[in-house]
Amino acid sequence: MTNDAWLHQQIQDLAQRQPQFTDRAFWVALDQMVAEQAQRRDQLQGEIDGRTWRPDRW
């Protein structure tokens, strides 16, 4: 299991265990926030890889 999938599962488990709607809402929204972080991380890493790939400098 990847770290992202593990974190997603931990947050969802915690969300399901909150009896109060507004508390559950926080953990569900945090899960979305974490997914956005992961997406941005992949995009930034991809851009760094792309920009550092310079065959003309080999």
């Binding site: 972080q37 930034l44 890493q45 851009e47």
Partner: peptide
Amino acid sequence: IATTFDQSRADLDQLADTL
């Protein structure tokens, strides 16, 4: 979860700086 979240946040800052 909080620790992992903070770490991801720091990682993103680092990546943005590198870029």
